[in-house]
């Protein structure tokens, strides 16, 4: 799992979301990915109990961006003790919306023939970055000017010794688009846009100083509470 190649979407390695000792022997590990417009929850289910597991189902609580399973959890045969099954559950964003704290928190219920189990996980915001997130240049300039300075957040991305073009290409693989590039006094400045599945636009300026290993990210958005999660996404993508 994971891809370090340029232009490929960033995918984090799976982590354990539900330890077997908390779920009567059912262990669930997972990660999230987005591939050409399809969001997936990529799961490994392991039966660490002494009995067979069957009748699996999954449900999400209401969440900030309406993430919901787009299909039932399909496990075709009962899961024998010590058996593991790998599942890619397609998700959509047309579920019920309720603002969560943190914003990217997802509460999940999984049922089998033994019981119902609950866990929470955090999803990376970039699974919500849509493919048509490149803003028109004129619109970008107008929107940048229009969003008040109080809505600008700045972040440092440390230790990323990549060129402007390499960073731009990596980010584009996860639907962060470079609208314009300038070089001022030796600094590369990238103006970038992205759009979330709920239609929120995010504008960014990324500064790259040749010879300096860090990047400076400025984020402007009409919904500034998303900015720290956008920064986290940048971190994950450029370091993937």
């Amino acid at each position: 799992v994971g891809s370090g190649r340029l232009g490929q979407p960033a995918v984090a390695p799976r982590t354990v979301w539900l330890p077997a000792m908390k779920a009567k022997g059912l262990e669930i590990s997972g990660t999230f990915s987005r591939q050409v417009g399809t969001i997936s929850m990529d799961l490994l289910l392991t039966n660490k109990a002494l009995q067979v597991m069957s009748d699996f189902a999954i449900q999400f609580n209401r969440n900030s961006f309406g993430l919901a399973p787009a299909a039932p959890l399909q496990i075709h045969a009962p899961l024998a003790p010590n058996q593991t099954v790998e599942i890619s559950l397609p998700l959509n964003t047309v579920g019920s919306v309720m603002k969560m704290e943190p914003l990217n928190n997802l509460q999940v219920a999984v049922k089998n023939n033994i019981d119902v189990f609950y866990f929470s996980t955090l999803y990376p915001l970039h699974i919500l970055f849509v493919e048509d997130g490149k803003m028109e240049r004129q619109m970008f300039l107008a929107t940048w000017k229009d969003i008040p300075n109080e809505n600008e957040a700045q972040f440092q991305i440390k230790e990323c010794p990549l060129s402007a073009d390499a960073v731009s290409s990596k980010l584009q693989g996860s639907n962060i688009f470079t609208v314009a590039k300038r070089n001022v006094e030796g600094q590369d400045m990238l103006y970038q846009s992205l759009k979330l599945t709920n239609g929120i636009w995010v504008l960014a300026e990324l500064r790259i100083q040749p010879g300096s290993p860090g990047l400076m990210l400025s984020v402007k958005c009409r919904a500034p509470e998303v900015s720290p999660y956008v920064y986290q996404a940048y971190e994950t993508i450029v370091k993937n």
């Binding site: 240049r137 004129q138 300039l141 314009a180 300038r182 001022v184 600094q187 400045m189 103006y191 400025s218």
Partner: peptide
């Protein structure tokens, strides 16, 4: 010519951000 205006506007934006 319109695109030249946009090019110029981005240059001004980048300049203003570097030397506010």
């Amino acid at each position: 010519e319109m695109d030249d205006g946009l090019e110029e506007a981005f240059s001004r934006l980048a300049q203003s951000r570097t030397n506010p």
